[in-house]
Simulated assay, not measured.
Amino acid sequence: MRARRTPLNLAVLSLLNEQPRHPYEMQSLIKERHIADVVRLRGGSLYDAIGRLLKLGLIEVSGTTREGARPERTVYAITEEGRAEILSLLREYVGERAEEYPVFGAGLAHLGQLPRDEAEELLRKRERSLAELTEFWANGLRDALASGLPRAVLLEVEYAQAMRQAELAWLREVLTDLPGMDWTGGC
């Protein structure tokens, strides 16, 4: 079942492997630990993932909590099968190379369909945006480490930063070479 092996399911299982939690706490930790930067989290997707994991027997309800006048919250815990699933997912995600199909690569494959000056303008726009983002995350990563967050929970942020830096260097090289490139001439 493909819906079983998703990055969001891995995030939920990983958080519950640390300790039982309710969904609001999981959502807060996903944001605080920057997991949301590498896992698609929209609307009710966390609750959908929890429902799938419950149905699959990878997590279970361990109780409820109530704080003050807030509504009662369901607390979930990981099962032994869920712990085995974490290891399986990690071995697959970290140990095996997967082909990924980002839209930027698809756009680059057909960039010659644009007039050269428009292509250059778009690449420069991306370069500026990427440079700002790279600087923002350099500061954010430094601050996160200085605040005491363990480096192990920030490895995906470090990886994303390394990918941004590599893309920025590549973009700058392409922009330097663009005037002399053969060009198909646009639409």
Rank of each mutant, 00 (worst) to 15 (best):
S28H: 06
F136Y: 10
L111D: 05
R126Y: 15
L123G: 12
Y101P: 08
Y76V: 04
E120H: 12
F136I: 02
A49M: 03
R124D: 09
L133H: 08
W137T: 06
V61S: 03
R42E: 01
V12R: 02
A69R: 10
V94P: 02
V94R: 11
V12T: 07
R4H: 13
G43E: 02
T65D: 00
L130W: 08
A84I: 13
E96P: 00
L87N: 10
H22E: 06
R42M: 00
E25F: 01
R33P: 01
L53E: 10
A131K: 12
H110A: 14
S62L: 00
R40A: 00
P20V: 06
P71T: 01
I35G: 04
A109R: 15
A131N: 11
E81F: 07
V94N: 08
G82K: 05
P20E: 05
T74P: 06
R97W: 09
M26S: 06
I30W: 00
G82T: 03
V103T: 12
E118T: 12
L10A: 09
A84G: 06
T6W: 03
Q19G: 05
E118L: 14
Q19H: 07
G57S: 10
L108V: 14
E135D: 15
E96G: 01
H34N: 11
Y93V: 04
Y47H: 14
T134I: 00
D117T: 10
S88C: 04
A84L: 12
A138C: 02
Q19R: 15
G95M: 07
L16M: 06
R40V: 03
L15A: 07
A49R: 02
S14A: 11
A69L: 13
P23H: 02
K55C: 02
R91A: 14
L89K: 08
S14P: 01
G140Q: 14
I59W: 06
Y93S: 04
Y47I: 08
Q113T: 04
S45C: 01
I50M: 00
Q27M: 07
I78N: 03
L46A: 08
G63M: 04
T64L: 00
E85Q: 14
A49H: 03
E100D: 09
L114M: 15
F104D: 09
G44N: 13
Q27S: 13
V38A: 13
S14C: 07
I78M: 00
A69K: 04
E32C: 02
L58K: 15
R116W: 11
E135P: 09
A11L: 08
L15M: 10
D48K: 11
E80K: 14
A131Y: 09
R66N: 02
E92H: 13
A11R: 03
E72L: 03
R4L: 14
R83H: 07
L8T: 01
P102V: 06
E60T: 15
S129C: 03
M26R: 03
E99A: 13
E120D: 09
F104Q: 06
T79S: 07
V38N: 13
D48F: 06
R21S: 01
V38W: 03
I59S: 14
